Simulated assay, not measured.
Amino acid sequence: MIALGEAVLTTGNAVSAAKLALPMFITAGLGMIAVIALWTLYFSLSDKLVDEQAAETSDPLRVARLAVNTRFSSSPASSSSP
């Protein structure tokens, strides 16, 4: 989530420092679309995908464990050592 915020700030800084031209607007727009797509995937679509997979599998407990492990292994808190 922090990386998404950093992407927005970096894009804003780059746009403010660049000359106003069509390629700059296209690049900035594509950057914002990418951030929005990642935000949507992270906060809404991933739960639906896990639910669909759990409904289709013969071992829903395994799917739940994989989902939890993936969620925690990709979070910044899990990378810290005890």
Rank of each mutant, 00 (worst) to 15 (best):
V68R: 13
F25R: 07
I33Y: 14
A17K: 14
K48I: 08
A34Q: 13
V50I: 03
S80I: 15
G31D: 09
A3G: 06
L20G: 12
A55D: 06
T11F: 04
S79I: 08
G12D: 01
K19G: 09
K19T: 07
L45N: 03
L9M: 00
T27I: 11
G12Y: 00
P76N: 03
A77T: 08
L20H: 11
E6S: 13
S80V: 14
A54I: 01
D59W: 00
S16C: 07
N13Q: 11
M24D: 14
A37F: 10
L22V: 07
I26G: 05
T57N: 02
T11A: 13
S44R: 12
M1Y: 05
I2C: 04
L49A: 01
S73R: 04
R62F: 07
V35T: 12
A21T: 13
T10K: 09
A14L: 05
S73L: 03
G29D: 09
E52C: 10
W39V: 11
G31W: 08
A18P: 02
L41F: 12
L22Y: 14
I2G: 06
L4D: 05
S79Y: 13
P23C: 06
A77M: 14
E52Y: 07
T57M: 02
L41K: 09
F25D: 06
L30Q: 13
I2F: 00
F43A: 13
L30P: 10
L41S: 08
P23F: 05
A18K: 06
D59K: 02
P23Y: 02
T27V: 15
E6F: 01
A21K: 15
E52D: 13
G12M: 10
Q53N: 11
M24V: 15
W39S: 11
D47K: 13
I26W: 01
S79E: 13
S78V: 04
P76Q: 05
L20A: 14
N69M: 01
L30T: 06
E56T: 08
K19R: 08
S58F: 10
P23T: 10
P60V: 04
I26C: 05
S80A: 15
A3C: 03
W39C: 10
P60F: 01
T70F: 09
S78I: 01
T70L: 11
F25H: 07
S75Q: 05
L30F: 15
T27L: 14
V63Q: 02
V35W: 06
L66R: 08
V15K: 04
P23W: 00
L9D: 07
A55R: 12
V68N: 06
E6N: 11
V63K: 01
V50W: 00
W39M: 15
A18I: 08
A37V: 15
E6D: 04
A64G: 04
S46H: 07
S78D: 08
A14Q: 11
L9G: 06
L38Y: 10
F43V: 06
G5K: 01
P76Y: 04
V50A: 07
A17P: 02
N13A: 14
L30I: 10
V15W: 07
A54D: 00
G29I: 08
L61N: 01
A14P: 00
Y42I: 14
R71H: 09
V35M: 03
A55N: 02
L66T: 02
